[in-house]
């Protein structure tokens, strides 16, 4: 079964999320010394805020988290996924990574190719690297190239098609063993690797600034008729929990597994604890439905009670449709957000 990877905003979330069904966690760690030196102007990872609990800020909390990991056996990886660092920061980040390793954390999510080069050049041993979803474009040529740096996992960014992921996995499986895909929340309008604008407390994300559809010039419109003229609709902030309200890939689980994806990411650092717990539980439920479909695929007929082949479908295609139907019925109860990742 594919594993559920959930985000931690604080160590207090570890146990409730384990109980909800998480198989692995990721979280940020920003030492106070970094915050005091660089603030949010040069963040250590992509949670560039001070006023919200979105990551860990003390080494002692990391040690407590390690105690929890030892007890529950659910691993945590740490994110150092800023798109770039500068000058002496490479040395500082490498030192932080080594300190984290000394207390028992061995896996790090990195987005900056220069940091990967630096970490390997410094010979930091036993440091496992997961390529962040904020890394530049993922394609098999790039993956084969970066595999020389001993990469354990690729986290595909949000705007990948399943067929592209499959192609990458097929070609790189021998060099990179694990592949993670985004599953729930925060379907950004722009690609993370190319999002260079501010993410801070004081200003909204640049993509949230007011805008209107305008024209390039007042020339005759060549694509007239193709344009959907309706006013753009925006999702209101949900007052009640809706699975995948801001981004969802649940319907694609069957295809993702077929493609070779091994891990599923729930974006959630800083989310309400109860929402994240429900996200984990919903994803667990979806994975159980997937297992049922897979177990029955050899001996169960199609949705229409007719063999797949008679209806012109391959078995996998038919099972995928069957899976989607059950997800809609049993998880969404007709309240699908239609904010699909894939």
């Amino acid at each position: 079964m594919m594993k559920i990877v959930a985000g931690l905003g604080s160590i207090d979330e570890y146990i409730p999320y384990v109980q909800a069904g998480a198989d692995e966690f990721f979280c940020g760690y920003v030492p106070a010394s970094w915050t005091e030196k660089y603030g949010t102007l040069q963040a250590l990872n992509r949670r560039e805020v001070m006023n919200v609990n979105v990551q860990l800020g003390s080494m002692e909390d990391l040690k407590i988290l390690k105690n929890m990991m030892d007890c529950y056996g659910i691993p945590v990886k740490l994110t150092f996924n800023s798109l770039f660092y500068s000058n002496e920061q490479y040395k500082e980040v490498a030192e932080i990574i080594e300190r984290c390793m000394n207390v028992g954390f061995s896996t790090f999510i990195i987005a900056d190719p220069a940091l990967i080069v630096y970490v390997r050049q410094q010979g930091i041993r036993n440091c496992r690297i997961h390529l962040s979803g904020e890394m530049s474009e993922i394609n098999s040529l790039f993956l084969k190239n970066i595999a020389q740096f001993d990469i354990e996992r690729v986290i595909f960014h949000r705007k990948n098609t399943i067929s592209e992921m499959k192609s990458c996995i097929v070609q790189c499986k021998n060099q990179i063993p694990e592949y993670e895909a985004f599953m729930l929340n925060e379907l950004c309008h722009f690609t993370g690797a190319y999002c260079n604008s501010l993410h801070c407390d004081e200003l909204c994300h640049l993509c949230h600034v007011p805008y209107e559809l305008g024209t390039y010039d007042e020339t005759e419109q060549k694509t007239e008729g193709k344009l959907v003229v309706a006013e753009e609709t925006f999702l209101e902030d949900a007052e009640i929990y809706v699975t995948g309200a801001t981004g969802c890939g649940l319907c694609s689980l069957y295809q993702l597994e077929q493609a070779g994806v091994t891990h599923l990411k729930i974006v959630g650092r800083g989310n309400y604890v109860d929402c994240e717990r429900q996200d984990i539980a919903q994803l667990k439920k979806a994975l159980n439905i997937l297992e049922e479909i897979k177990e029955n695929r050899e001996n169960q007929s199609c949705i229409s009670q007719m063999p797949c082949s008679d209806r012109g479908y391959e078995r996998d295609e038919c099972n995928s449709m069957r899976f989607k139907e059950r997800i809609q019925e049993e998880l969404f109860h007709g309240k699908c957000s239609k904010n699909c990742y894939y």
């Binding site: 309008h189 722009f190 190319y194 604008s197 559809l213 193709k226 344009l227 959907v228 753009e232």
Partner: peptide, 17 residues
């Protein structure tokens, strides 16, 4: 450049609303 999407936001607005 400040932000880029590999899935075009302008296309989505014009095509899907």
């Amino acid at each position: 450049q400040t932000n880029t999407s590999q899935y075009c936001p302008l296309y989505a607005r014009c095509k899907e609303g």
